[in-house]
């Protein structure tokens, strides 16, 4: 029942996305910025390496900018228009509403990542690329997107302005991505430095860019996703009080 209800919400979300310009801008912005970074700043063609590590290294930073743009309207628009009340009065259940919305944003992210395949398809004939590494990089990119989207939905679920939702999510993602860099500037006990590295989204992503399927990192992203969505489910009801 939850699956069918979530699918109903997902269809509605996708129709809404199709009718607004935001996803198109986000997808185009991501593709252009990632390509500019890879071919211009990273200078892949001059680097003489058969690896997309440089390309995927930009993903955590790009996610920080684009994911808040997708999650900021999830709850704020529903609340502003009064449709959240309509949604919650239907026998869908808060879990299905959260999952449907999450699946909606992840669909846009999946489409974005699918379009980035143009880059490997272009450069792979130029050298001996490791296909296993590319698969690991894409798997990591999906898991990182999933955790970031869930966090964005959680951060913005009680806010009433899209600007506040965007800025709050951006700040939350900056903190969680840059956590591992704190020990570089501040002298911390080894245990705390390890903890900061363990919770850093960007640090956990590094293994995937080297072609390593790190089960610890995969587990971390999945736990973060499930926890954020669960808290989101609890909070949307409270936010209406």
């Amino acid at each position: 029942m939850t699956r069918q209800a979530a699918a109903t919400v997902l269809c509605k979300e996708l129709r809404q996305y199709a009718a607004t310009g935001t996803p198109y801008l986000v997808i185009a912005g991501f593709l252009v910025l990632a390509a500019v970074w890879f071919f211009w700043f990273y200078d892949f063609l001059a680097a003489d390496e058969a690896s997309l590590r440089g390309y995927f290294a930009a993903f955590p930073v790009l996610y920080i900018v684009i994911i808040p743009a997708l999650t900021m309207r999830c709850w704020v628009e529903e609340r502003r228009a009064g449709t959240l009340e309509l949604l919650r009065s239907a026998p869908l259940g808060d879990r299905a509403i959260v999952l449907g919305k999450f699946a909606g944003v992840m669909s846009i992210m999946a489409l974005t990542l699918a379009l980035t395949l143009a880059v490997p398809m272009t450069v792979v004939p130029l050298g001996a690329f490791d296909s296993g590494e590319i698969v690991a990089e894409y798997l990591g990119a999906v898991l990182l997107a999933s955790a970031s989207v869930a966090l964005g939905m959680l951060v913005s679920c009680r806010l009433r302005s899209q600007v506040a939702a965007y800025v709050s999510t951006l700040l939350a993602l900056v903190v969680l991505n840059a956590a591992h860099q704190v020990p570089l500037f501040v002298n911390l006990p080894a245990g705390l430095a390890d903890l900061l590295r363990a919770v850093s989204l960007e640090y956990q992503f590094r293994g995937f860019t080297r072609g390593v399927l790190d089960t610890g990192a995969m587990g971390y992203y999945l736990v973060l996703t499930v926890l954020a969505l669960y808290l989101c489910e609890l909070r949307i009801g409270v936010a209406e009080e």
Binding site: T8, T20, T83, L87, A90
Partner: peptide, 18 residues
């Protein structure tokens, strides 16, 4: 309240599906 971006028929289909 209604979803401004949707067509009337889409809104009704969603309400029925929900």
């Amino acid at each position: 309240p209604c979803y401004e971006e949707l067509l009337v028929v889409e809104q009704l289909r969603f309400a029925a599906g929900a």
